[in-house]
Design a binder for these strands. Structure first.
Ligand SMILES: [Mn+2]
Ligand SMILES: [Mn+2]
Ligand SMILES: [Zn+2]
Ligand SMILES: [Zn+2]
Lengths: 167, 167
DNA sequence: TAACCAGATGATAGTAATTATCATCTAGGT
DNA sequence: ACCTAGATGATAATTACTATCATCTGGTTA
C-alpha cells in the first residue's frame, strides 16, 4: 500500500510531546507563554479535524470564556509563523481560476502568489488506479509546490513585491 | 527531468480549440450561450495567471463595460460546475489549521470538507532533492487528494450533509 | 518583591471577497 | 414575432478576517 491514511491513535502521544516542548519553543521564538496561547495550541493539537479559527475559538472558550476571536486568529497566525502550526489552505484568501482543464499541478510563489502549471507524469502514474483511500473514494488530486519565484527569491527580503501585504 | 513547468506557448492553440467547442459544451450543459459567458471563458483561457474574479472582471470590462462583477463570480462558478474551468483554490473559503507539523499530505472530501492526513513516502522521495523548478526555488509541497468521504459518498445525492450549502 | 514595559489581549470598527435578492432582460425554442 | 426559463445588473447582505487602540500582563530587572 503506497498511500496511507495516518492512524488517529498516533495523535495522542504526538500532541503530548509537542505540548511539553511548547513553552520552550515559544521563548525560542521570542514569544510570551500566555494562557491563551497554551489553550489554543492544546486545542489545535487535540484535533484531527484541521479546524477553522471559529472551531478553535469554541473549544478554547470553554476554559477561557473571556478569550477574543481576534486573539484566536492572531495566535493561529503566530503559531504558523514560528513553525508550531501550519495553514492547510495556503491560498485561501481568494479564489483562483484555471481555464486549463487537462490534469496538471502547480507551483505557487509563497510571496507574490504567482501560480504556474507543472506536469509530473510520475506522480500521475503513482496515483492512477488509486480509487479508494480508507473510507474515501478518490476523485482526483492536485499537488501544490510551494516556492519562491525569481522576482521574490533573488532580491533581499524587504523591497519585494509581496501580495500578502495587500490584505 | 521529472517535474516540468508547462510551456506557455501551448496555451494559444489550446485556448483556440476550447473556444470553438465552447458553445456546444454550454448547450450540452443546458446553458445559454451569452456574450458574457463567451467573454469570460475567453479571458480565462487567454490567461496563464490563474486569475481571480476581479482580474477577469477587469479584462472583460474592456469589451463589455456594462458587465457586473456578480456575473463574473457566478459565471466562473458555473464554468467549474460544467467542467469548463477549475478552481485552483479548492479550500479557499476559510483558513484551516493543522497542529501536525510533520510532513504529510491530505485527503479532502469535496462535499463536507472533512480533511484527513495521509502519508505518501514515495511522493516525498520523488520530490526530495528537487530544489529548483524553472525560475522557482522549491520550499515544500503538499498533495491534496479530492475525494468523497464515507458519509457523503455512500448516500444518494440530496440528503447529504454538505458543508458547501452553508454559504 | 516591586516596578517596569514590550508585547499580548479584548472589544470593536473596518475591509474585502463572495453570495443573496430581485427587478429587468434575453437566448433560444415555438 | 412571441414566450418563458434562465441570465444579468444593481445593490444589499454576509462572512471571514484584519486593524485599531485602550488596557493588561509575562517576564525581566533593580
Ligand atoms: Mn493550472
Ligand atoms: Mn494534516
Ligand atoms: Zn513571487
Ligand atoms: Zn464528506
Amino acid at each position: 500500500m503506497e498511500l496511507q491514511l495516518v492512524n488517529e491513535r498516533r495523535r495522542g502521544p504526538y500532541a503530548a510531546k509537542r505540548l511539553t516542548e511548547f513553552a520552550a519553543r515559544c521563548r525560542r521564538g521570542g514569544l510570551a507563554v500566555t494562557p491563551q496561547r497554551l489553550a489554543i495550541i492544546e486545542a489545535l493539537l487535540g484535533s484531527g479535524e484541521h479546524p477553522r479559527a471559529d472551531a478553535i475559538f469554541a473549544a478554547v472558550r470553554m476554559q477561557h470564556p473571556h478569550i477574543s476571536l481576534a486573539t484566536v486568529h492572531r495566535t493561529l497566525d503566530t503559531l504558523c509563523d514560528i513553525g508550531e502550526a501550519r495553514k492547510v489552505t495556503t491560498l485561501h484568501d481568494s479564489a483562483r481560476y484555471d481555464g486549463n482543464i487537462t490534469p496538471h499541478h502547480h507551483v505557487v510563489c509563497v510571496k507574490c502568489r504567482r501560480i504556474r502549471d507543472i506536469e509530473i507524469p510520475r506522480l500521475d502514474r503513482l496515483l492512477a488506479g488509486q480509487s479508494e483511500l480508507g473510507e474515501f473514494t478518490v476523485l482526483g488530486s492536485s499537488l501544490e509546490i510551494h516556492a519562491l519565484c525569481e522576482d521574490c527569491g533573488a532580491k533581499r527580503a524587504g523591497a519585494n513585491r509581496t501580495m500578502k501585504a495587500r490584505r
